[in-house]
Structure formats: structure tokens, C-alpha cells
């Protein structure tokens, strides 16, 4: 591994993976406790429509993708707030439509066609320095927002109705949360690909949810787990010449199932301790 880091592209890949892990650890915690994994998937896929528009209309790539996914995300957030029982269906429709729209627009664009595979699995081995700086800025931005609104986000995530009564601006905060998620997803997809974003958003927070005693612990733990998966995954990818994004996901997936297995085999001590205490 150390020798691999002599190469600049490996160092950049490592830095990109670590930054993505931290950003996804924080946002993924919010995604998992708010049960909006499906919505995140919807945003990530619908974003492809924005890429299509950038190519077809010749708009600037980042602005077009960001604008399109923010728009789609806001619609999804509004539907989730106002018609909860219909939300998953509508998200599914936007998910599919955005993706189809992107593919057709790219079909219609003359000349160079963007590779769908690189959108799905990213190109972590060819991350330019500029993208790293964008990720650093975004990471700081997200950490800042979450720090300022931590208590309100906690109340919103735990018990929305109670939060409303305590005067937390629930609706505005929910749109802010979904907006942050859209920005995160679009920026990180650029670097590591859609599939890895979904994996990093869900797997580390899911594992940490069982052990953390606070949302903050869950965010930190998820980030650390993500970093671990990234390092091991990249090393395997280097050593065995495998696709990097997929290797990281495989490591995360194996850890996920091992963790489930261990949970099953070892009786939950905390649970049995509680049941022994008389009420």
C-alpha cells in the first residue's frame, strides 16, 4: 500500500475516498435515521437528467447537474412532507424519469458521449486536484451547517411533531436537509460514482446505528468505518487489479454481513441486561 502511494493518482484516489467517506458518514447518518435512503437513491439517479441537459444544451456541467438535482430533490421533499403515503411512488417516478431523460438527451447530443459506467462507478483513480479542493470545501460547508443546526436536526429526525411544537422550523429545515443531500450526492458522485455514494451513505451508518449513543457518535463512527472500507478496498483494488469503487463496496458489504452474523451469534448483552432489571 505504501509503495502505491508513491503514485499521485493513488494519493488523489485515497484523498477523494477519505473525503467522500467523511461527507457520506455525516449525511448518511441523517439519511438513515430519517429513513430517506430511497429518496437519496432518487436524487442520485435523477441527477443524470442534469448531465443530459448539460450535454444537449451545452450548459455548464456542474451548474446544470446541481440545478436539476436540487429541483428534483425539492419536489421529492415537498411530496414527502405533504403526502407521505404516496412519497415512495412519486420518488420512484422521478428517479426513473430523470435517468431516462438524461440518457435520451445524451443520445441526441452530437459528438462525445459520456460513459454511463463512469457515472455509476465513478473514476476515483483519475480525480484531479481541483475536485479534491471542491470536496474539501463541501465537507467543511456540511460540517458547519450540521454543527449549527445539530439540535434542531436531532429533534426533527427523532420526533418531527415534537420538534414543531418546540418551535423548530421543521419544514424549512427538512428542505435544507434534502438540499444538502442533493448537493452532497451530486458532488461526490462526480468523484466516486453513484453506486459508491449509495453504499457509503447507507452501510456505515446502518452498522453504527446499533452502537452509537448519539447522532454525533453515529456520524463520527460512520465516517471512520467509511475511511476503513476505502483504505482496505483501494488496497485490494491495487493488489489484485480490480475496479476500485466496486472493491470498496465489496469490503463494506462483507463487513456488513459479518456484523449481522456476529450480532446473531453473540446474544445481545445490553438487551438481556435490561430485561433483568425490574421495573
Amino acid at each position: 500500500m505504501v509503495e502505491a502511494l508513491q503514485f499521485e493518482f493513488m494519493r488523489n484516489a485515497m484523498a477523494a475516498g477519505l473525503l467522500a467517506s467523511v461527507i457520506c458518514g455525516i449525511m448518511g447518518t441523517l439519511v438513515v435515521v430519517n429513513r430517506i435512503v430511497f429518496l437519496s437513491g432518487g436524487i442520485a439517479h435523477a441527477a443524470y437528467g442534469g448531465i443530459g441537459m448539460a450535454f444537449y444544451f451545452g450548459w455548464p456541467y456542474l451548474a446544470s447537474t446541481l440545478g436539476f438535482s436540487l429541483g428534483a430533490a425539492m419536489v421529492m421533499a415537498a411530496v414527502t412532507l405533504n403526502a407521505k403515503h404516496r412519497a415512495d411512488t412519486i420518488i420512484g417516478v422521478i428517479w426513473a424519469l430523470g435517468m431516462a431523460c438524461g440518457i435520451i438527451l445524451i443520445d441526441l447530443s452530437p459528438g462525445y458521449n459520456v460513459d454511463l459506467m463512469s457515472y455509476l462507478f465513478g473514476s476515483i483513480l483519475t480525480v484531479p486536484d481541483a475536485d479534491l479542493w471542491i470536496m474539501v470545501a463541501m465537507g467543511l460547508f456540511i460540517v458547519g451547517l450540521v454543527a449549527v443546526y445539530y439540535k434542531d436536526l436531532l429533534a426533527l429526525s427523532y420526533d418531527e411533531e415534537f420538534a414543531r411544537i418546540r418551535g423548530v422550523p421543521v419544514t424549512a429545515l427538512y428542505f435544507l436537509l434534502i438540499g444538502m443531500l442533493a448537493v452532497t450526492v451530486v458532488m461526490v458522485i462526480q468523484v466516486v460514482g453513484l453506486i459508491l455514494v449509495i453504499a457509503l451513505l447507507t452501510i456505515p451508518p446502518f452498522i453504527m446505528e446499533k452502537y452509537a449513543r448519539s447522532m454525533l457518535q453515529m456520524m463520527i463512527g460512520s465516517s471512520v468505518l467509511g475511511v476503513l472500507f476505502t483504505i482496505v478496498g483501494l488496497w485490494i483494488s491495487y493488489a489484485f487489479d480490480l475496479t476500485s469503487g466496486a472493491s470498496i463496496i465489496m469490503v463494506a458489504g462483507i463487513f456488513f454481513f459479518l456484523n449481522l452474523l456476529v450480532e446473531r451469534l453473540i446474544p445481545d448483552r445490553r438487551k438481556s441486561a435490561t430485561s433483568l432489571i425490574p421495573e
Partner: peptide, 25 residues
């Protein structure tokens, strides 16, 4: 029934949520 039982939060932090007030960031 509406509340997520797996949520990572301690009893104390749940109670502290009651201390939130409008405009008190």
C-alpha cells in the same frame, strides 16, 4: 408507535429536546 426505537439517543438527550425553544439556537 410513531417513534423510531432504534434511534441512537439516550434518555437524557431525549429529555433535553424539551429544552428547545423558538429562536434559541
Amino acid at each position: 408507535v410513531h417513534i423510531n426505537r432504534r434511534f441512537p439517543i439516550t434518555a437524557l438527550d431525549v429529555v433535553l429536546m424539551g429544552k428547545l425553544a423558538p429562536g434559541k439556537r
